[in-house]
Design a protein around this nucleic acid. Sequence first.
DNA 1: GAACACTGTTCCTATATACGAACAACAAGG
DNA 2: CCTTGTTGTTCGTATATAGGAACAGTGTTC
Lengths: 264, 264
Amino acid sequence: MGSSDHRTTARILDILETIASVQDGVSLSDLSRSLAIPKSSLHPLLCTLAERRYLHYLQREERYYLGENVFVLGNKYVNNHDILEQIKDVMQQVNQSTGETLYFGVLSKRDVLYLAKADLHSQFRVVSNPGNKLPAYSTGYGKALLSQFMPDQIHSLYPEGDLKPLTPQTVRNVEQLNVQLEGIRATGFAYEKGESTTGIQCVAVAIKVEGQVLAGMSIAVPEFRYTKEREEQFKTLLDDARAQIQRIIAGNRSQWIYSGEYNR
Amino acid sequence: MGSSDHRTTARILDILETIASVQDGVSLSDLSRSLAIPKSSLHPLLCTLAERRYLHYLQREERYYLGENVFVLGNKYVNNHDILEQIKDVMQQVNQSTGETLYFGVLSKRDVLYLAKADLHSQFRVVSNPGNKLPAYSTGYGKALLSQFMPDQIHSLYPEGDLKPLTPQTVRNVEQLNVQLEGIRATGFAYEKGESTTGIQCVAVAIKVEGQVLAGMSIAVPEFRYTKEREEQFKTLLDDARAQIQRIIAGNRSQWIYSGEYNR
DNA sequence: GAACACTGTTCCTATATACGAACAACAAGG
DNA sequence: CCTTGTTGTTCGTATATAGGAACAGTGTTC
């Protein structure tokens, strides 16, 4: 449990994350500069990562790119267990009866990690793909997930107090956020009104099993299709789907590996 | 380009791969035994990986699992570029007009890595998910990809000569494989008859840009729905989709990062 | 309840790795 | 053509890391 920092391990992760964050590859010297690691130290690490296909080195460009095996490894995170497939089935039923997109995700520190979606019957192109992270306070299901925390916990999660906004609609400070979270705890529903993407509104719920909030789910709707009447329909469907998913998770508790935080 | 083996890097990858290969997590001592690394050496590596959320440690089980960030990293491999989305669109058109599932993948050493599929309008549950690898010789698009190699190259790829079969229908040695590859080069189409999954037949093509084979694509059909007439339809549609995809890749050549081998 | 098997943890030094500097290979610019 | 900028590569030693052995919990067995 000790928080011993192993430099080499941290470096390898830094390397992979740096290369992942850039579209057009990174050269050895680029990496050396941006991570403040000598080229001579970097070199053997990169060679081994490339040999194992976690990186590709394009000689003609003198640049490193991610290799296939990060994709292979990353997919093992979701493919080893079929619980997510069952959850997606439930989401697809709601998607089918509403025509709107469903999102499902978990908390990763202060971010919300988007694990799955259902948008087979939706009219719009995908906005985002699984594997992406967003600040929890900026999304509907992020706020549903945060609603498990009391004001003081939220304060210690965001010691700065200010929240970086993604759109003009995003909550800007912890006090406002806490007011919203109180409302979510009272009603069981979280709302997002263009706070992560302008023009998109969401209704969201928290997935709770044995008193622990494990995940969040939202339905995302373009503003111009969002009415009070439909909102009631979304809430009914979401609440029903929530119950089904909670039963699925409760029945496969050991398969739930998607949020380490709460089952230590 | 030197193949210097960096022990620590190799160990970290071994750790991640070992944990990924098991359903129910691995304990520190398990890892120590299976990788022949002292527990005391393993310990700081695992702590750092867990701190960075590439692993989760469940205290009540005393076991390590994959963490979210392997998923985040792995998805960057496909999400950074939208070329795959365009390719999926083409595949979905074929899927819509046939009702059968389309697969798309690239070569990774001797394996075929499955990158995308289109099965919105298919009658059967998913067999496999993206991120999986299979022996190239056992699948239709794998053989399409291998067809770029001449007999002597195939021999040096499989020095043993024998090929481990997945089903009774899988090719069992390099000589038989070379005969099939010759046929694929002549006709442009590869066939799979229950060689990776009993009861599933495939027609496949190689995606070729500027003389380089970059990817493979197949249409997978249950045996009982497979007829000579439909086969002709599949070939026409596949060939057309192949041409479209080749144009997409040619127009976004710099976005193609999915097979390091051939563009060094 | 003592003995054992199993976890994970800590310590200290032998040893493998990291790093500065020097080198090579190539391109751009004057 | 020499300069100055890239790029990656190679060395030898200073230094950080690895690993044996001992320790500390927890659960099971007899």
